[in-house]
Design a protein around this nucleic acid. Structure first.
Length: 255
DNA sequence: CGTGTTTGACCAGCGC
DNA sequence: GCGCTGGTCAAACACG
């Protein structure tokens, strides 16, 4: 299997408009998955771990907010710089930013379709985009207006799921792929499914407190793993993190 | 052997 | 009707 692009964990991103609904700090998920508060009620050990988990989550959220502030700042600088570049690139960047700011289906080109632009490694020629669902490729075509091939996928999580997606590298930027989703999933994503399964039922464990402790740990493992995967694959994050760290070091050195 | 990918063939829609 | 194009099918193939 070739390297793939990971769309997972746009959990905390306020501009996220992908159809991916992942396990995260989403209030809606509380009805489906057992909460940590519940777990902490009847076991002091679980309670300690839950507090620890909460602290870690808060730190992640703070880090994410700082990342977004840095990202906004870098974006501003880039826009200033890019305002002097070619009209073609400017037009693409406008479209790119527009796509990120889309909040509802009403703004999308075709009703029932959702489009996502995903930054990828330009050297990676595969058209695989991980988004928490399972896809089966059923075709590939070279279209007239774009020399790079367009791949056609059907959702294979359930046989009855009608969702399809098209994946094609952007004509203007090799480092971006355009993913067009058609239809609505009639099931949860595999990551949601896994996390909820872990949180709701675990066979072979007799003690309920033991089960809840393991559930809580595994749920957080999933969260942390997804967070780490997403952040580590975001070139903006790594570069901005490096910049932030170096600026902090410089601040300290000046004292 | 089961599952997923590749790829040429086929089909439908559209414009001329 | 014809040709072009995008989308889908399905047999062959690869891989674990």
């Amino acid at each position: 299997m070739v390297a793939s692009i990971d769309l997972n964990l746009n959990l905390f991103c306020p501009t996220d408009d992908s159809p991916v609904q992942e396990v995260g700090f989403n209030d809606d998920d509380d009805d489906e998955c057992s909460s940590e508060k519940e777990l902490a009620d009847d076991d002091p050990t679980v309670g300690d771990l839950s507090n620890e988990n909460r602290r870690l989550k808060e730190r992640i959220i703070v880090a994410w907010e700082k990342y977004n502030i840095l990202k906004t700042h870098v974006k501003k600088l880039e826009q200033e710089k890019e305002s002097l570049s070619s009209p073609k690139k400017r037009k693409f960047d406008e479209m790119f930013q527009q796509s990120l700011s889309m909040r509802s289906n009403d703004e999308l080109p075709v009703s029932g379709t959702k489009r996502a632009y995903v930054r990828v490694d330009p050297s990676d020629k595969s058209l695989v985009v991980k988004d928490g669902y399972q896809w089966r490729k059923y075709g590939q075509k070279v279209t007239r207006d774009n020399p790079s091939p367009r791949a056609y996928y059907k959702c294979s999580n359930t046989p009855t799921c009608p969702v399809k997606k098209k994946v094609q590298r952007s004509m203007d930027d090799d480092g971006v792929v355009v993913v067009t989703y058609e239809g609505e999933h009639n099931h949860r994503s595999s990551t949601q499914e896994a996390a909820c399964a872990l949180a709701s039922n675990e066979g072979g464990i007799s003690s309920s407190s033991e089960r809840k402790l393991i559930n809580s740990q595994k749920l957080d493992e999933v969260l942390v793993e997804q967070m780490a995967t997403y952040l580590s694959k975001d070139p903006n994050f790594t570069s901005e993190l490096a910049a932030a760290i170096s600026s902090k070091i410089l601040e300290v050195e000046t004292f």
